[in-house]
Amino acid sequence: MTAVREVVAPTWFGDRRRRTLAWVGLSALVVLGVVVAGGPAADAAQTTSLTDRNLGPSAAHWFGTDRLGRDMLARTLAGLRLSLVVGVAAAVVSAGIALTLACLAAVFGGVVDRAVGWLVDLFLALPHLVLLILLAFALGGGTGAVVAAVALTHWPTLTRVLRGRAREVMSSDYVAISRQLGHGRGWIARRHLAGHLAGHFVVGTVLLFPHAILHEAALSFLGLGVDPGEPSIGILLAESMRYLTAGAWWLAVLPGLCLLVVVKLVDTIGSNARALLDPRSHHL
């Protein structure tokens, strides 16, 4: 292929890459908006008004009110903010564990590699939710325990992806040649491995995040998550259960839908970022 290069000015029309980028940006903006809006909503979320109990959605209360007359929109926003914060913390810690293990396995190989592989298989073989519940229980509940429990159970899949990629890099001809030029393990990890893993790492972290949010909600729903006083989405859903039969559908449906939308948006960011980060991707 001839190496003639000419930079073409991209047009907005018919440019899939630009549209993807715009879509990612919009998703990120909405997610960020939820986090920002959740801050001021925290007060309103805890304000009780016994005259406005169990109202359906209306102009004054878009998402209705609960049994204590608290505005559900405010509670949902505050809950999403809490979920997002827990999700980010858990995803980042989890991805950190994955990266460390994958690099150790690839750089040292042999026994270390086998040990990491064994550990990944072990964690993948155990039922996810049971492990999560046991960990959260053992760590004593509360927000910190949820972050720790989610972080400690979500690293295996990403570790597996990163380890595969790292192995591929380490067995390549260019790493063999760098070794032959007298460079040590640290140099190869820094100069070769880091660059090749960065893209996978970023995307993997973003994609871990929706998982982490959903599992946080699940734990809170089961009563092992964040402090019941805090309005996390899981707690909102758990509370709403008792009132569903009384016809208060808005208590469960609207916060649940919001969680779904946020998770979907984050997922969009993650999967599109993968295509954007690859410099030679053909189709985007």
Binding site: M1, T2, V4, R5, V7, V8, R17, R280
Partner: peptide, 18 residues
């Protein structure tokens, strides 16, 4: 010609057959 992207939005055309 192949239309490719470099990092980010820089688009370029590679003339493969001329």
């Amino acid at each position: 010609d192949f239309v490719q992207y470099e990092r980010g939005l820089r688009r370029r055309t590679v003339h493969a057959l001329t």
